[in-house]
Design a protein around this nucleic acid. Structure first.
Lengths: 160, 160
DNA sequence: GAAAGTCATTGGTGACTCCAACGTTGGTGA
DNA sequence: TCACCAACGTTGGAGTCACCAATGACTTTC
């Protein structure tokens, strides 16, 4: 891609004498890292009030959507390593939020199912997560949030 | 903050029957995590071609800006833990990109300085970092990038 | 001159990501 | 039928990253 000549405020055309730190801290990757860290912190703190972590919320959501589902399928959907999925499901099963029974149709698989307690818990977690995300974007107006999310989505989907 | 009623596309007003996974994956925190991970990967891969990591680039930039500077000050500026700063500077010093000499004015401190080789290396790293960031936002037009960065900056600065 | 604070350094923890291996089970082709 | 390969859940472990505690040396403050 030809860069053309960028407007004077874009970080891709730094002034020759611009401090290196100023340059770095204006990079999208740097800002995304900070924003992501803040989001993780806010969400993690919110979910921690319920004794849960983000991975628990994600997997519980996947189980809710995919009904009886094997662990490998959960891993493919949520992006967690099979090894980590074992631990996450151990936690969820210990709190009786999911059931883990051998699949009679394919004895290699475990059929993971949501319990009623799991469904109630998931509703709580979703609420906590939404509130944290509201705080994360508190600096933006509703219209700006929508625009920001649209742009962010395009950046993310460019990864596929 | 009163939520008012949001436009139908905002994730803060999920449809009652919306799949939990769809909801989670549309959360700002989720998208920011993915975008941040992609940025980290792109930048890390670019810098790895020069045998460096992001922390090396950041600290090297800070040294370039702050002239002779103590490690604690570098840590405060870049946000790295003092413990990690030791390792980062060990790496930079081993490649003779910085000098680390006791500060005669305050013998508790180390005076960190950039070497000529460090300055040349920093220029290379900045170029690699910029290219990776260009790839990161390749899906957006220049105007959209500017807008995205402005919004992202406000989200980040809301953290202070 | 004593107390408190700062400095660089070491050691350690917890969360997250990823890879390799293993025994078990299912499907496929010889 | 019987190899063979693939997928499954599980275990063990490596590496990164952010963070916290403690320590000895040194400086500042009162």
């Amino acid at each position: 891609m030809v860069s053309g000549y960028a407007p004077c405020m874009t970080p891709n055309a730094p002034a020759a004498d611009e401090p290196a730190l100023t340059h770095i801290r204006a990079l999208p990757s740097w800002l995304l890292n900070r924003a992501s860290a803040r989001g993780r912190r806010l969400v993690a703190e919110a979910l921690a009030r319920d004794g849960m972590r983000m991975s628990h919320h994600a997997v519980l959501s996947a189980v809710a959507d995919l009904g009886p589902v094997a662990q490998a399928e959960l891993g493919r959907t949520t992006g967690f390593d099979p090894k980590d999925m074992v631990g996450i499901l151990n936690d969820l099963q210990a709190q009786e939020l999911v059931t883990r029974a051998p699949d009679p149709a394919d004895r290699r698989k475990n059929a993971i199912n949501l319990t009623p307690a799991g469904r109630r818990r998931l509703a709580r977690l979703a609420k906590l997560g939404d509130e944290a995300n509201e705080a994360l974007l508190a600096a933006l107006s509703p219209a700006e949030r929508e625009l920001f999310l649209a742009l962010l989505t395009r950046v993310v989907e460019d990864d596929d």
